[in-house]
Amino acid sequence: MTGAFKFDCLAKSRQTLARAGTFTTPHGVVETPCFMPVGTLATVKSLTSQQLKDTGAQMVLGNTYHLHLQPGENIVAKAGGLHQFMGWHRPMLTDSGGFQVFSLSQLRTISEDGVTFRSTRDGRLIHMTPELSIRIQNELGADVIMAFDECPPYPATRAEVELATARTYRWLKRCMEAHLSDQQALFGIVQGGVYPDLRAEAATMLSALDLPGYAIGGVSVGEPATLISQIVQVTAPVLPETKPRYLMGVGTYREMVQAIAWGVDLFDCVIPTRWARHGAVMVRGERWNIKNAQFREDFTPLDDTCPCYTCQNFSRAYLNHLWRAREILSHTLLSIHNVTELVRFTSRIREAILCDRFTDEFGHWLTSAGDAKTES
């Protein structure tokens, strides 16, 4: 890990592999475990950067694929990079665009060199290679950048997953050669589908490259939650203890707790803002539909223990009214609460680990897929 980046483990759970740490970046220190809101197009939907900061968010994601299409990495670079462009001066991460490209199954062609696809914005033909993905991310300027990988769908045959996993490794080597900035940490991505041996083998091979951090990719692509837990169990403990571990695209309470129990540090997911746009809110582990008639005359806050702007100033009745009136403000207020809820949730887990009370306070989330056990 370069001098600009450092991961320190401050405490571990005695019953599991859960850990609390700090990840130092050029734009600040991230306290882990940490939930990272997704800001696809240099914006977390419906929130200003100040509102996002007020939720307690420490680190935000941008999307290489979408930012390449609009406004273009050259414009972002001219603005001074993503931090300056969107007015967010805390740590940032950009994903490689791999997941988005590979989700365009009807619009792309894969070769050893890269992926050719048609833009969903204007129809132009784009050839994305590992080198181009890294060049785009170097210009965007996030603290953490991701290697360009091949994300196999679910379900996929073992042969298909073997090919994608091997190609991901070869592309990672090319990403490492193309990466030029010592102010950006390049994370590798472990693929391997739902095959435990392929996951463990990929994690071992990537670990040998001594990267600044590692991600577990190719989950939340349609497989059952129990399989996600199994993937994490065989992958995370293989990754270096001295580096941050990032589970991509996961942001539910249970899945995060189970992953943390196996040593995962970072998470991202679009759930908080996506749910908000559909009138759904997270309240103490439950999903509520604010559109329901039961809230029309409920003048209490969503959660009287929540410090967010929404809960401190508005009632369930008001939020119900905004949604029924189709006011855009409903998206903002519900997003503020949902992001705050997941940020607070991982912060509470961190405090529990520091006090060695992780299983005491969050053990009930572990039961569905079996308790995580300490390494032998």
Rank of each mutant, 00 (worst) to 15 (best):
V190D: 14
V190E: 12
Q191M: 06
Q191T: 07
G193Y: 12
V194N: 08
V194Y: 03
V194W: 03
D197S: 15
D197A: 14
D197C: 10
D197W: 07
L198I: 11
R199P: 06
A200M: 12
E201C: 08
E201T: 14
A202H: 15
A202S: 15
M205G: 02
L206F: 11
S207P: 12
A208M: 13
A208F: 11
A208P: 10
A208T: 14
D210G: 04
D210E: 15
D210M: 05
L211C: 01
L211M: 04
P212Y: 02
P212C: 08
G213W: 12
G213S: 09
G213P: 09
Y214T: 08
Y214L: 08
A215N: 09
A215I: 11
I216A: 01
I216H: 12
G217S: 05
G217A: 07
G217C: 05
G218M: 10
G218S: 09
G218F: 12
V219C: 06
V219R: 08
S220K: 08
S220L: 12
S220I: 09
V221E: 09
V221G: 07
G222F: 05
G222V: 02
G222I: 07
G222P: 04
E223G: 05
E223P: 07
E223R: 02
E223H: 01
E223V: 07
E223K: 03
P224Q: 04
P224V: 03
A225T: 03
I228E: 02
I228N: 02
S229E: 05
S229G: 13
S229N: 11
Q230G: 03
I231G: 02
Q233C: 01
Q233H: 05
Q233Y: 01
Q233T: 05
V234K: 05
V234M: 03
T235W: 09
T235R: 11
A236F: 09
V238T: 13
V238W: 08
V238D: 06
V238C: 05
L239V: 06
L239A: 05
L239H: 13
P240K: 12
P240H: 09
E241D: 13
K243I: 10
R245K: 15
R245W: 11
Y246C: 07
L247K: 04
L247W: 04
M248I: 07
M248K: 01
G249I: 01
V250H: 05
G251T: 06
T252G: 02
T252N: 01
R254Q: 09
E255A: 08
E255T: 00
M256V: 03
M256H: 00
M256Y: 00
Q258G: 00
Q258K: 00
I260R: 05
I260D: 10
I260T: 06
I260G: 02
G263T: 07
G263P: 09
G263M: 10
G263Y: 11
V264F: 10
D265H: 13
D265F: 15
L266W: 08
L266C: 14
D268M: 11
D268W: 03
D268S: 14
V270E: 07
I271S: 14
I271T: 15
I271G: 02
I271C: 06
P272K: 02
T273L: 02
T273I: 00
R274T: 07
R274Q: 10
R274Y: 12
W275Q: 13
W275H: 15
A276Y: 01
A276M: 00
R277V: 13
